[in-house]
């Protein structure tokens, strides 16, 4: 794998995470539990769409095959997507959505923090902008997880169920492969495996405040970030998201 291939894969991972999770959040548009949450969720989704444009835009340039961010977003099939499985998991109830958001935000904020010092100036520049947005995402999702975990009996039970359901998807964010090794060697991005300790400490702190129990089983589902085996959920998401572009390939919108 050339350095350029590895960089392309890395950028797809970053951009596909925000693309797919941003899409999931946008599914809440108009139906959130309260107006203020509806507006806040839309802000998070908007941030992610913006970050996607940067990551995938740069990915297209690195690839050098004349694909822009839209082309990459709307014309690849599931096996070419490189997001972690966590991002494509369905919204479920609001608790599941917020738990998924927190588990991702915690990783995202730590990871972007490292990218600020990337040897690739474009990566550092995107991380600089994104990390400010993500710091707020984390503050908000952590606060909501705490409030609902420590809220009523029902909200506590729902949040615990969400954590139990999603926790097996956490491990994938800390796996390393050849792409990561190349990125680490080039000083472009950290090896994800080195971030787990910091992540665990952060999650443990929030879950303690939320009175939620972190599952002991650390088994990790994987296959998203290398595209080997996504969940069944991704195909349906893509059907919806890509439909117009696929149905009318010659159209400009």
């Amino acid at each position: 794998m050339t350095r350029q291939d590895a960089l392309f894969q890395f950028l797809l991972r970053m951009g596909d995470n925000t693309l797919i999770l941003g899409h999931r959040i946008s599914e809440w548009c108009g139906i959130a539990p309260v107006l203020e949450e509806d507006i806040a969720l839309a802000n998070t989704a908007l941030d992610f769409i913006g970050q996607t444009q940067f990551w995938l835009g740069y990915a297209g340039e690195v690839e050098g095959k004349d694909q822009d961010a839209d082309r990459l977003a709307f014309h690849r099939d599931a096996w070419d997507f490189r997001n972690v499985l966590l991002c494509e998991m369905p919204n479920g109830d609001f608790g599941q959505t917020i738990m998924r958001q927190f588990l991702f935000d915690a990783w995202h904020s730590i990871f972007l923090g490292r990218l600020l010092k990337s040897s690739d100036p474009r990566v550092a520049e995107i991380a600089e902008k994104a990390s400010k947005e993500v710091a707020y995402h984390l503050e908000r999702s952590a606060g909501t997880v705490v409030a609902l975990g420590d809220g009523t009996e029902e909200s506590h039970a729902r949040m615990q169920a969400a954590l139990d359901y999603l926790y097996p998807y956490v491990g994938e964010m800390f796996l390393s492969d050849e792409v990561d090794q190349q990125m680490a060697e080039a000083g472009i991005a950290p090896d994800p495996a080195t971030l787990r300790e910091e992540y665990d400490a952060l999650v443990a702190r929030v879950m303690a405040e939320a009175t939620l129990n972190i599952p002991e089983n650390r088994y990790a589902h994987k296959g998203g970030r290398d595209g080997y085996m996504h969940t069944e959920h991704l195909g349906h998401l893509l059907c919806e998201m890509q439909w117009l572009q696929r149905a009318y390939p010659d159209a400009k919108w």
Binding site: E36, A40, N43, D47, K132, E133, Y136, E139
Partner: peptide
């Protein structure tokens, strides 16, 4: 104005509703 369960969330909601996250 807006609605929020407590001051902490009111500040966050204010940020989302009235400043759209401007630092």
């Amino acid at each position: 104005s807006l609605h929020a369960p407590d001051a902490e969330h009111a500040i966050k909601n204010a940020r989302d509703v009235y400043t759209r996250r401007n630092e």
